[in-house]
Design a binder for these strands. Structure first.
Lengths: 201, 201, 201, 201
DNA sequence: TATGAATGAGATTTCATTCAT
DNA sequence: CATGAATGAAATCTCATTCAT
């Protein structure tokens, strides 16, 4: 009957639209399939189940996100911060990079970060926060030691949390990539300077 | 058979527990009613529908929250900030007050802020953010004028956003009221100082 | 709308017919409900789920069966068999009793013993066999000791098995109660005499 | 791509495993085919349909079973029983033979006799019983005449039935061939002596 | 005041089967 | 010789909601 790839793409595209519109949980397979001109069985043939379809939609952008994240974390951990003084614009490069990635796959990222409730990925933000937590924990500890101060654990976790929230906020409030880049810069400045100022006590 | 009031209270109490456990959307009326020893019809008689039941659960704490918020906003708006310089601990009183209110009605606040998806109140955070937005817009404008600087609209909105997120984060990560008070203080310090530093450009 | 009891009875009656015709597994809730002039939701309201409906159909006859079985087993265990010699007709009374019970609830017993695959009760025959096994194990042991012989474990289990099979065979091959009583008598004679002759070696 | 025969064998082998594990009805073609590294279409090409696949799995053992059965029946029918007196061990040779055949093709026989529900062969036991019925009817009639007794038709059929049940019981309760041979001997003794004692009345 | 019965629309999932290629 | 795509019909179940009593 139809070409596999065409149908597959159509299904993914319709699913993407539906997930974006109503979120994973309320998304109706029936509706997606009708939209794509197929029956629900086709989804089970091609993707296994509803979660599989979700996976197919977000797969690639997700792995790219993890790649960038992993790289960023590795760099942060290696940096010698004993003599660090924050200067505005410090992190503009990373800001650029992350926004680039996010907006290159805008729909998928929105789905992943804001519309995944009920799916396997519903706790993705929490997982990212946990990764940052761990990373910043190491950094803060070293930093604290070099300056004779202590780490406020609550603030540490909070900073990871709002960093992720900041990204989601950007995504949900600014559709234009260039503007997004500009918007996120002061946010990052703020986060970094606050880290130095409030995580260490 | 049962006294109306008793049944009403029981229903509200069971609903509260269920909403807290699984969120509005996944909460089952039947389950709530069974738990309360009543039938679903009772809900429709007493509260109109599922949303009405939700409303009854959160009603009072919600209006108190709005009251405090309104008061806070009024004060902020009236303050003369032309000569303001942030000092850590500045906002400890408000911190105390808001935490007090939040933790006095912990369950309801959690439901309202973290478990309301699918209900009429699902965008409560956004509504609060909008209120803060408006308020801080006025403040920032005045502040900016008095110092010859401009307001970064994105940062303005972002600050409102993370202020609300900070509250939610506190609620979801610290159940003890005293500790919550201590935790939120540096957060508020950070927010205020960042406001001065990053909203004005 | 409809009277509860009427609908309930109609549902149970239609379910009974369907289970009898095609067995639990292939029985269609939809079909049962259509037949009863209701929707599937009604089943879930009244019986919880498909298994619950099955339970409602067989409940009473099942407990009666267990009662008779328990009584029979208790008697068997207490009997002093040291001087036992089998005489044809020995067990006619029990034959009468069990057939009476079985045929008083013919449909339900058929469903229970021959049409329950896929339900919670699918292993009812095995459970009965296990009960008999245990009982006859005790009897045989005592019997064997009093005559200086040993118990053939395989034959012991086999005898329990064909006793149950004999009942099922009767049920499926003779619908008339009086004829059933007559038919089962020689079967029981055969089983008892074979027990003495072949379980002990 | 693959050799037809190889694929065929693989398919049959995987189907055998699946049927054995979950029975014909619950067996999933897709699962069998995945396991075999083929697609469902292959089954339809090679075997027509699910039932055809089942047939291919049990074909050979089934015809061997029928052969042995036919031979056994022929012999029984020819035997002059006018002066027959049962002696234990009488039928040990046949016991050996049938167990040999059954355990030489253990999986297929299990499938055929215990896992075929839903397939074309689901009533195989009944068909075998019918064959035995007919045979034993002839034998019993002659026997009865020579001794001036009558045949109890119910018992006649019942004996055929439990003979088949005995085989199935053996198969499902004893995997070792040697032990199976020993186990079945007293069973056959019992059946033969009961035949003489209880079929004739 | 509240019940209890019932609906109806929906959900996800499974599966044997078909057929163009 | 076999694939891969797709169907279509069915399955069980969930739930908010309605309404006569």
């Amino acid at each position: 009957m139809g070409e596999s790839n065409e149908s597959r793409e159509r299904l993914i595209s319709c699913a993407k639209a539906e997930f974006l519109r109503v979120g994973y949980q309320k998304a109706s397979l029936r509706h997606i399939c009708t939209e794509a001109g197929l029956t629900t069985g086709a989804v089970y043939f091609m993707f296994g189940d509803k979660n599989g379809l979700f996976g197919a939609v977000v797969e690639k952008p997700l792995s790219e996100l993890f790649a960038l994240l992993g790289q960023h974390i590795a760099e942060e951990k290696e940096e010698d911060m004993s003599a660090y003084t924050h200067i505005k614009g410090d992190h503009d490069a990373f800001a650029q990079e992350i926004v680039e990635l996010l907006y290159e796959n805008y729909d998928e990222m929105m789905i992943l970060l804001d519309k995944s409730q009920g799916s396997e990925y519903e706790n993705l933000p929490d997982r990212i926060i946990a990764m940052l937590d761990e990373c910043y924990g190491v950094v803060a500890q070293r930093f604290a030691k070099s300056r004779g101060r202590r780490v406020n654990e609550y603030m540490l976790h909070y900073m990871s949390h709002i960093q992720v929230e900041s990204i989601i906020h950007l995504l949900t409030h600014e559709r234009d990539k260039q503007k997004a880049v500009e918007n996120i810069k002061p946010v990052f400045d703020m986060l970094v300077s606050s880290f130095v100022e409030y995580v260490l006590e």
